[in-house]
């Protein structure tokens, strides 16, 4: 049964969240977020198989091919396309290689840990239908969203905030795994595309920020100014 692989995947995803909160090197941050994306991509076929046992559709190749193509697309976008784009942005916009945090790394890690605890307790109270695969799915998803928010709020650099946005989307993706039966592929692809456009737009913003100021720190954007 492949669903046995699901929980280790989610545990790794949560641990990567904690690591993401404590990493200060931008390159490393990009790599870790990419690894998390790849793990999500791997979770996708596992959940899918758990839902539709191949016994009835043993000869039907189309769902299998579709599943494979989707998995490869997710892994390719999250694991290679986005990191490559971000790395290019780092190169082109001449961004500093370290990420700084408004509140410091240890406090944000602690907040992440406490947040995870609250989420894990809270998720127990949620009325979820019993056929959902694992008690870990919702807490993992919410923890990942929370991590994304934390990164978005506490990191000064625009690019790190882009990464926070991606982490948040990863969380939404995990939540989407719950609805894998109901959600058609187009919607799923739409989410990935959304993200893609988001990163694209953010890339442009980062570029402009870094052109207006020597480094792409959002602290310069604190006050509005009329020209």
């Amino acid at each position: 049964m492949m669903t046995a692989l699901l929980e280790p995947c989610m545990v790794i995803a949560v641990l990567l969240n904690f690591y993401i909160l404590s990493v200060s090197r931008l390159k490393m941050l990009i790599v870790v977020v990419a690894i998390q994306g790849v793990i999500l991509g791997l979770m996708y076929p596992i959940v899918h198989q758990g839902f539709a046992p191949t016994a009835e559709a043993g000869l039907d190749l189309i769902p299998l091919v579709r599943l494979l193509a989707l998995t490869i697309a997710i892994i390719a976008i999250k694991g290679s396309l986005i990191p490559v784009m971000l790395n290019r942005a780092v190169l082109l916009a001449d961004i500093r290689s370290t990420v700084t945090s408004v509140i410091g790394f240890v406090p944000s890690l602690l907040i992440g840990g406490v947040g995870a605890a609250i989420v894990f307790v809270f998720a127990q109270q949620l009325p979820v239908s019993p056929d959902h695969h694992s008690p870990l799915l919702i807490p993992t998803s919410l923890t990942t969203v929370l991590t994304g928010f934390l990164i978005l709020v506490t990191r000064r650099e625009a690019l790190a905030q882009v990464l926070g946005y991606i982490v948040m989307e990863n969380g939404i993706f995990i939540f989407g795994l719950l609805l894998i039966e109901a959600v058609p592929i187009l919607v799923e692809l739409g989410v990935v595309l959304d993200l893609f456009v988001g990163v694209f737009v953010m890339g442009i913003i980062v570029h402009h920020v870094s052109r207006a100021f020597p480094e792409a720190s959002t602290e310069h954007l604190a006050s509005l100014k009329e020209l």
């Binding site: 545990v11 404590s22 894990f120 127990q124």
Partner: peptide, 21 residues
């Protein structure tokens, strides 16, 4: 301290897993 807090968070996550299951 960051590494130690990290280890603590990892252990705490393990504790959460035990409490959930």
């Amino acid at each position: 301290p960051a590494a130690l807090v990290g280890a603590g968070v990892v252990a705490f996550f393990g504790f959460l897993l035990v409490m959930i299951e």
